[in-house]
Nucleic acid binder design. Sequence first.
DNA 1: CCCCCCTACTCGTATAGACGAGTGGCTGAG
DNA 2: CTCAGCCACTCGTCTATACGAGTAGGGGGG
Lengths: 262, 262
Amino acid sequence: MVALPSGVLGALDSTSDRAVFRQIADQLREAIDKGRFKEGAKLPSESELVEHYGVSRMTVRNALSVLQGEGLVHSEHGKGVFVRPRPPVRRLASDRFARRHREQGKSAFTVEAEAAGSRPEVDSLEVKEERPTQDVSARLGGPRRVLARRRRYLLDGRPVEFAASFLPLDLARNTPIAQPNPGPGGIYARLEELGHRLDHFEEEIRARMPSPAEIRTLRLASGVPVIHLIRTAFDTEGRPVEVCDTVMAADAYVLAYQLPAT
Amino acid sequence: MVALPSGVLGALDSTSDRAVFRQIADQLREAIDKGRFKEGAKLPSESELVEHYGVSRMTVRNALSVLQGEGLVHSEHGKGVFVRPRPPVRRLASDRFARRHREQGKSAFTVEAEAAGSRPEVDSLEVKEERPTQDVSARLGGPRRVLARRRRYLLDGRPVEFAASFLPLDLARNTPIAQPNPGPGGIYARLEELGHRLDHFEEEIRARMPSPAEIRTLRLASGVPVIHLIRTAFDTEGRPVEVCDTVMAADAYVLAYQLPAT
DNA sequence: CCCCCCTACTCGTATAGACGAGTGGCTGAG
DNA sequence: CTCAGCCACTCGTCTATACGAGTAGGGGGG
């Protein structure tokens, strides 16, 4: 039992009607915000906090779970509770699907990651035909069956994004799009080669807390929301040719859009 | 102590190495997902769950706090724990700043809300001159002082969004922009009247858990992230003329963008 | 010198109990 | 019949204790 670093944490206000565990959480949060605990630094252990505040361990754990829910700290069994480092963010520009970017052989993800000095990976590649969900079917104009392409993206070994593309079967079957690796420029380049000249994309963005499955797939820490992006690609005839459903770890991304003012 | 509705919740698997509170959370989550507890419905009380599973109350509370952190349920002191209803979402189209929308007298928020049958409100209106944060200053090209316009938006009495606009002082001082109500079409219409013809907007989107202040301002339930949007408006000379920092309750919004494929 | 094991420390899970405070329905007095 | 007050039920907070399991470091044996 080592004494706490002096002066970092104050005392409780017993006259306050604010719950004790909230007061403790407040003090820890303030100390983190002010940099008295730096990114990645270890907080005092639960038993040290019990000692310092003179409360029971459950109260301390309650306070820590508040901070964990806010995404400020994460705990490691057997080691301690640490201030969550802000991971480097990956920035998605709205022109990343511009035609000129489809020339080179690599995928947008690979190019952007390497430009940022990170090691990109793609796994969980799955390509199969299936019945679409009601939502996907509606967005694609009601096909009974679709080609689904699922993959997970990782940066430096950390999963950051899970995406599923859906294309009408009549359009994708027996084409390079149905191959695990569709070739340079990705499926958008193949679609254009097949005569479906792309006209525009529609993107819908939501943010929410992850499902248990998403927590597993993206290895999300608690307190990290996901960004849910649904993109629909339209060809020049106004036909929807692809729906891409993407779930991203929110702490790894900034989305950037440029809009005309006209 | 009333018996549980039969068959809704199963038994624990004592051979599993999954923690008991997680198993309970799993069963409740599944029951909610499958609609056996509907939106707004009351879950069994803590003591009923204690009875049903034969565990201590803290274990049950632990399970419930998992679901609360996921945003699936919310508790009401003295009443019970309820399945969180999905609130109606407000859809923000990417053309909502198009020039043609600036003709009518009402603000975009008011028009859209009334079209959706909701009662819009704006409060916490504050207009003042101040020193910008480093980030805002950098985005605006480095002014020492800015005009800040802060306001909160509510739908049917529920706060959904808190926004702060920042404009360089030399541009906004002693203009209608410095008035609490800048007039029909909002500050973008005034900017154009002042000769700053708008060219394009840049938007950055992040998602994260709210700070305690944001929880208060937006009266957020636990397990609801926020969408943080930073928009910069540029005039035809390429000068940034406004930065708008917006924090939205994520469960109230879907952002929609349309992107050209060129 | 190296490696294994023990130990002390960490957090994870769970029990049992206590009191407080908000809610809503029932009951008895008026 | 009305209404005030009681009471049972709800969740909120806190204490005290126990054991399990992951981690890291030191010490002792090979």
